[in-house]
Structure formats: structure tokens, C-alpha cells
């Protein structure tokens, strides 16, 4: 096994142990979308033009993507927690791969959040959501969600490493809940005023949400949308590729130099 793979595996183990000792944040971030599904699905759903059952089918993919987008917040919080404590400097004085610390964090995040999709999907099934496409398309939807989570986590890791304190990271991370509100995750964007609709459709969350709805067969691709939403799978892959290509190297470099 290469040094990078070995060190990353060791760091993945460390992250999983940390979560085992202190599962609070994980439980909170994974139960929140279930609460939102029930609230939005039954409270807001009753006020929308769309019938309630149809809205809940529409909402489940949106919540899956919004939860994946929470990777920014979790990534920031975890990276800031490390970078303002002495253990990070000990890692930097060890003869280990520079990229292993952030890679281990991103890998453990992926393992945990993939497992965390299961309860949301089960509650979704209970309130009327169904997989209406093929099994292969459903697997592709889950894989896309994982890829998107991975991309979001790297944005979070970079911001967390750059943040002044754990508290600052917590506050800024908390503010990211606004991102899915400016997308089609919770509502269709068709009726938004022109400029807002354009902004929402260029939000990566919209492309991924549309792709997941399409792959699960829950809702058709909307007509006349911006390119990433009109071609949701290609648009999502392009967004993820760009975000990872930008933020992964920046985060690894930031970690390696420690801002020195």
C-alpha cells in the first residue's frame, strides 16, 4: 500500500473513532433533514399548488442534496476543530503524507453520510416517496450524492483551515443553511422572478437535485432551465469536477503549509 493510502486509512480510523466518542454533530446533521421532511412535507406542502404526496416525492431528493451540501458546514467545523488544537502541529512534524489528514477527514465524512442517507430514505418511503426509475439509475443517484458530498466537504475543509477560530467556523458554517433555499431543492424554480431563477439554477445544488429527481424518476427535468439544470447529470458532474479540482488542492496546500 502506498504511503498516502496507508496514512489516509489511519486518519480515516481516527476520524471514525472521534465520531464514535462524540456523535452529537453527526446525529444532529442526519436527523435534521428527517424533521424538515415532515415539516415541509406536511406544513408547507399543504399550502403549495402541488398535491401533498407529489410534493413529498419532490422534496425527498431535494433534502438528500441539501444534506449533502451540509458537507461545507461539517467540513469547516471538523477542520477548524483540528487546526486550532495542538494535534495538527504534531501531525505536521511526523514523516507522513501531507494530504492524508484532510483526505482522511473527507473519507470518513463520506462513509458516515452515506450510511446517514438510509434513515432519510426509509422515512421518505413511509411518507410516499418511491424509486420510480431503474435500479441502475437509483445507484447512480446515490453515487452522485456521494460525489457531491465529497466536493462540498473540500470547500468546508478549506474554509475551516482558513478560519480564525472554532467559533467563527461554527457561525459561518451555520449560515450555509441558506444555500439550499436559493435552489430548487425545496421548491420549483419555474415561478421565481427572472434574475432569481437564473441565480438559483446556477446554484450547484439545483443541478444535482434535478439529476437525483430524474434518476429516481420522481420529477421530470424542467423546461427552459439554465444549462446545468437542463442537462442535470452532465451539469452535476461538471460542477463536482470543477469544485473538487479547485478546492481539494487548495485545502491540501493550506493544510501542508499551515498558513506559515
Amino acid at each position: 500500500m502506498s504511503a498516502l493510502a496507508y496514512d489516509t486509512t489511519a486518519m480515516l480510523g481516527r476520524q471514525l473513532q472521534r465520531v464514535r466518542h462524540n456523535p452529537g454533530l453527526l446525529i444532529l446533521t442526519q436527523t435534521m433533514p428527517i424533521t424538515m421532511l415532515l415539516f415541509f412535507g406536511y406544513v408547507f406542502g399543504s399550502a403549495l399548488a402541488m398535491p401533498g404526496a407529489e410534493y413529498r416525492s419532490f422534496l425527498v431528493p431535494g433534502l438528500l442534496v441539501a444534506t449533502a451540501a451540509n458537507g461545507i458546514m461539517t467540513g469547516m467545523f471538523e477542520a477548524a476543530r483540528d487546526s486550532h488544537r495542538g494535534v495538527m502541529d504534531r501531525f505536521r512534524t511526523l514523516p507522513m503524507s501531507r494530504a492524508a489528514v484532510p483526505l482522511g477527514q473527507a473519507a470518513s465524512d463520506l462513509v458516515l453520510t452515506t450510511a446517514g442517507m438510509v434513515p432519510l430514505l426509509l422515512v421518505g418511503l413511509a411518507v410516499g416517496w418511491r424509486i420510480e426509475g431503474t435500479a441502475a439509475e437509483a445507484v447512480a443517484a446515490v453515487a452522485l450524492l456521494m460525489l457531491f458530498r465529497f466536493a462540498m466537504t473540500w470547500i468546508g475543509i478549506l474554509l475551516g483551515l482558513a478560519s480564525q477560530s472554532e467559533e467563527a467556523a461554527g457561525q459561518l458554517g451555520g449560515a450555509t443553511f441558506i444555500l439550499p433555499l436559493l435552489s430548487n431543492a425545496y421548491i420549483p424554480t419555474d415561478n421565481l422572478p427572472g434574475w432569481l431563477r437564473t441565480a438559483a439554477e446556477w446554484n450547484p445544488i439545483s443541478a444535482v437535485t434535478t439529476a437525483v429527481r430524474d434518476l429516481f424518476g420522481n420529477a421530470p427535468v424542467p423546461e427552459g432551465a439554465a444549462w446545468p439544470v437542463a442537462h442535470p447529470v452532465a451539469g452535476s458532474l461538471a460542477w463536482c469536477a470543477v469544485l473538487i479540482a479547485v478546492f481539494l488542492p487548495l485545502a491540501v496546500r493550506r493544510y501542508a503549509t499551515g498558513g506559515r
Partner: peptide, 8 residues
């Protein structure tokens, strides 16, 4: 500055 991980 170089210490252990308090969460482990």
C-alpha cells in the same frame, strides 16, 4: 503546541 488528540 504539538500535543495529542483530546477527542481520542
Amino acid at each position: 503546541f504539538a500535543s495529542v488528540d483530546g477527542d481520542l
